[in-house]
Amino acid sequence: DLSALRVEEVQNVINAMQKILECPICLELIKEPVSTKCDHIFCKFCMLKLLNQKKGPSQCPLCKNDITKRSLQESTRFSQLVEELLKIICAFQLDTGLEYANSYNFAKKENNSPEHLKDEVSIIQSMGYRNRAKRLLQSEPENPSLQETSLSVQLSNLGTVRTLRTKQRIQPQRTSVYIELGSDSSEDTVNKATYCSVGDQELLQITPQGTRDEISLDSAKKAACEFSETDVTNTEHHQPSNNDLNTTEKRAAERHPEKYQGSSVSNLHVEPCGTNTHASSLQHENSSLLLTKDRMNVEKAEF
């Protein structure tokens, strides 16, 4: 173990290094160091905050020279020094078990990766560091076993998940096959086929009936047209017969005018059967003409 005197000496050296690497504005270890034209180094955030307070150039807090945003430059070497100082402080805390008085939040800088452990060898070769390295080497064999167990647990979990997924996939297939086998029997399929065939026959029977009705309507229309044509021909046949009657009536009127007047009046009210309204109107006109002729003949006879 380190003596108290040596611990104090190391602590004083760390404090001196820390004062050199402090920012003059925030009085902390410089984060993202930036250098000016006057070779003074500050935190990048502190300098941008200072420049944004005034429009135009501002003055350096140490030498009062003008500073602009374009004049600022990043210093990589200074950032490396800060990183190495942080590593020294971490090693000091691990070796002594004491917390550094002016320690900052170094938890963000710590890294437990194997590459980081290899890099620590180049920091300080001390008894405390050696003991700590031995402890780490002793704890390393235990870690692979834990990793193997965790991997086995994960693989077993994956296997159970896969088996569950396969079961879920197989179950719908089985149910679907069961439904297909038990849903419709052979008799049901035959009945469905016969039902479809009967429906098709009914459709075939319905369509000819409609065509037959249309044919019957067409035949009825044709018969009505033929009947009207026969009526017209009958009226045409009746007209010459009426003319013959008129000639006979004229002759009778010349011989017996008194008797014919009474008979002509009675004939006005008689309509021949089986004739249309057109034929009756023609008869009325003929009878009126005959009456006028008879009157003329009677007057001539009187004179």
Results as ranks from 00 to 15, higher is better:
D1K: 08
A4Q: 08
L5G: 09
R6D: 06
V10L: 01
Q11T: 13
K19E: 02
I20T: 09
L21R: 00
I25L: 01
I25H: 00
C26F: 00
L29Q: 02
K31D: 07
P33K: 00
S35F: 15
T36S: 04
K37I: 12
H40S: 01
I41M: 08
I41V: 08
F42H: 00
C43F: 00
L48T: 06
K49H: 04
L50M: 03
N52F: 02
S58T: 03
K64R: 15
R70Q: 13
R70K: 05
Q73H: 08
S75G: 15
F78V: 15
V82T: 10
V82I: 08
E84N: 05
C90I: 04
Q93E: 13
N102S: 14
K108Q: 01
S113R: 15
D119G: 08
V121H: 13
S122V: 15
I123G: 12
Q125I: 00
S126F: 09
R132L: 06
A133W: 05
A133Y: 13
K134I: 06
R135V: 04
L137T: 09
N143R: 11
N143C: 05
N143F: 14
P144W: 04
P144L: 10
S145P: 08
L146I: 10
T149N: 03
S152M: 07
S152W: 11
V153I: 07
V153L: 14
L155P: 09
N157W: 03
G159C: 11
R162I: 00
T163L: 06
L164H: 02
L164F: 14
R169L: 10
R174K: 14
S185L: 04
K192Q: 03
T194H: 15
C196Y: 02
L203R: 13
L203G: 14
L204R: 15
T207G: 12
D213Y: 07
D218L: 06
D218S: 11
A220P: 02
K221F: 05
K221D: 01
A224D: 12
E226G: 09
V232F: 08
T233R: 01
N234R: 04
T247F: 11
T248L: 15
E254A: 12
K259C: 05
Y260I: 13
G262H: 09
S263N: 10
S263H: 10
S266M: 06
H269F: 13
N276P: 03
E285V: 07
E285K: 12
S288E: 06
L290W: 04
D294M: 09
R295L: 15
N297I: 03
F303S: 14
